[in-house]
Design a protein around this nucleic acid. Structure first.
Length: 465
RNA sequence: GGCGGCGUAGCCAAGCGGUAAGGCAGAGGUCUGCAAAACCUCGAUGCAUCGGUUCGAUUCCGAUCGCCGCCUCCA
């Protein structure tokens, strides 16, 4: 069975078949660069990275685009408050964003278009819409008229016949014919950045950038568009309206959305003081691999409750994988293979991939992986493993590393001083001077180096946070 | 008010019609100079509650309770 994804549009899991065989065109809604992205944002980006990696592993060429929203109400307001030009201000957070992506081991997308660099494309899209009669002007701004697009509401399942709930009427909305109509072009305001265009002086509406940039890089119809659930309405609904009204064809074939992350059971918010950023957690000494593991280990469509206990549990789980990887690096066995271990490897491998094929069931995949961890240790302990088996187990761990984007095992170099201490301890043990050996072990433990004496010799690892 | 999601052992979390994966923590044991790691054994007659459908439901349907979210340019 092939890939299956849950499509928000149909509210069903569907077989995934890309438009062009062997190629997936993917648009992932990116950050608004007015502040550091928090771990909730990264839950979504990490899941998208997993999606990308799994598609790649399944042999697809992935063309991913992630936008950077560098002009909107918040970026403008914050830049002004900081006394910086918009571009100068957003540059800082764009740089920080990429640092965080690297820290979390997120693969780079093919394109990271910035909104401010695509004003002409957006203007062209607006002109098309105006030509087709989907827009009206009010006080210099241009609005999309919902009534002209009958399919409006299909994604979010809002009834086009009724008003969308009790949306509060703010000052802006007095200018609209219908409160659900949305701005595609906002007239210039004093003190705000603007562009002189055929549409007049002003700036683009938020939804516009994603339509214009996704279609520019991926075509008028592309395969997958992702984001957080909060984007379903109105952002993605409006994108569909704008794009399809302009092109007359299907905009996106599969819509996928990640559920939110909460912290200690509560919504993350500045006022609650429970907003965590990647840099904060790293500064506090947490392994970013453990964070990645935690955020990936819960199915993306389920709410994830972030706690420090959960982070510690992820760190512990990861240690277990590290330990096996470490053991496999060190051990060798006679050539050959044993059917039981080979069967376990195959079961784990197939189980992992099947789970991931089924709408990216990461928790299910991890279950299969840990089954193998136990089988592999057992086989090694009982000498029921040959060189070929070890290779097969290593390959399965490598599969995990590639798709989950987490490197396993002990990597790093010890300082000469620590290396010397380990050597002295080995000698002390050889001469049965256990008091000295324990002293050295305790000393190293203080420095975060844990020693284990194994039949294959001493092994060390850095203590996890 | 409208729309949506979630509720499985102490904690995290799969499964979603055929009799409850996996991880963490904990207990006992094997191994070890002692540890650590690893391995073995132990945990829900039970999947929020109450009804219904079914030969059979954690899985489907209905109601109720609790939590989270969107409807405000929040991933």
């Amino acid at each position: 069975m092939g890939l299956r994804f849950y499509n928000t549009l149909t509210r069903q899991e569907e077989d995934f078949l890309p438009l062009r065989p062997g190629e997936v065109r993917l648009y992932t809604c990116g950050p608004t660069v007015y502040d550091y992205a928090h771990i909730g944002n990264f839950r979504t980006y990490l899941w998208e990275d997993l999606l990308r990696r799994h598609l790649e592993h399944r042999g697809f060429r992935v063309i991913q685009v992630m936008n950077l929203t560098d002009v909107d109400d918040k970026t403008i307001a914050n830049a002004r408050e900081a006394g910086l030009a918009l571009e100068e201000y957003t540059r800082r957070y764009i740089d920080a964003f990429f640092e965080d992506l690297d820290a979390l081991g997120i693969e780079r997308a093919e394109q990271y278009p910035r909104a401010t660099a695509h004003i002409p494309e957006m203007v062209r899209l607006v002109l098309r819409l105006r030509e087709k009669g989907h827009l009206y002007e009010s006080r210099g701004s241009l609005y999309f008229k919902i009534d002209t697009f009958p399919a409006y509401g299909r994604l979010a399942h809002v009834d086009p016949g009724t008003r969308a709930g009790h949306a509060r009427i703010d000052a802006d909305e007095y200018e609209k014919d219908d409160p659900r109509d949305f701005a595609v072009w906002k007239m210039r305001k004093d003190g705000e950045p603007y562009w002189d265009t055929e549409l007049g002086a002003g700036r683009p509406g938020w939804h516009l950038e994603c339509s214009a940039m996704s279609m520019k890089y991926l075509g008028e119809t592309f395969d997958i568009h992702t984001g957080g659930v909060d984007n379903i309405f109105p952002h993605h609904e409006n994108e569909i309206a704008q794009s399809e009204a302009a092109t007359g064809t299907t905009f996106v074939r599969y819509w996928m959305h990640a559920a939110h992350l909460i912290v200690d059971g509560e919504k993350m918010s500045k006022s609650r003081g429970n907003v965590h950023t990647v840099r904060d957690l790293r500064q506090r000494g947490f392994d970013s691999r453990a964070l990645r593991y935690l955020l990936l280990s819960v199915h993306y469509r389920k709410p994830l409750n972030f706690t420090f206990e959960g982070l510690a549990q992820s760190q512990a789980a990861l240690s277990r994988l590290d330990d096996l990887a470490f053991r496999l690096e060190r051990e060798d066995r006679p050539a050959g293979g044993h059917p039981e271990l080979r069967t376990a490897v195959e079961a784990a491998r197939a189980g992992m991939l099947e789970a991931l094929d089924a709408d990216l069931n990461t928790a299910g995949a991890l279950g299969h992986l840990f089954d193998l961890v136990r089988e592999a240790h057992s086989a090694l302990d009982a000498s029921r493993a040959g060189r070929e088996d070890l290779k097969a187990v290593r390959e399965t761990l490598a599969l995990f590393e590639a798709i989950f984007g987490i490197r396993l095992g002990q990597h790093g170099i010890l300082e000469a001083e620590i290396e010397a201490l380990i050597k002295r301890r080995v000698e002390a043990r050889a001469s049965r001077d256990f008091a000295q050996a324990d002293r050295i072990r305790d000393d190293l433990a203080q420095r975060g180096i844990v020693l284990e004496d194994t039949p294959q010799g001493v092994r060390w690892k850095r203590k996890g946070s």
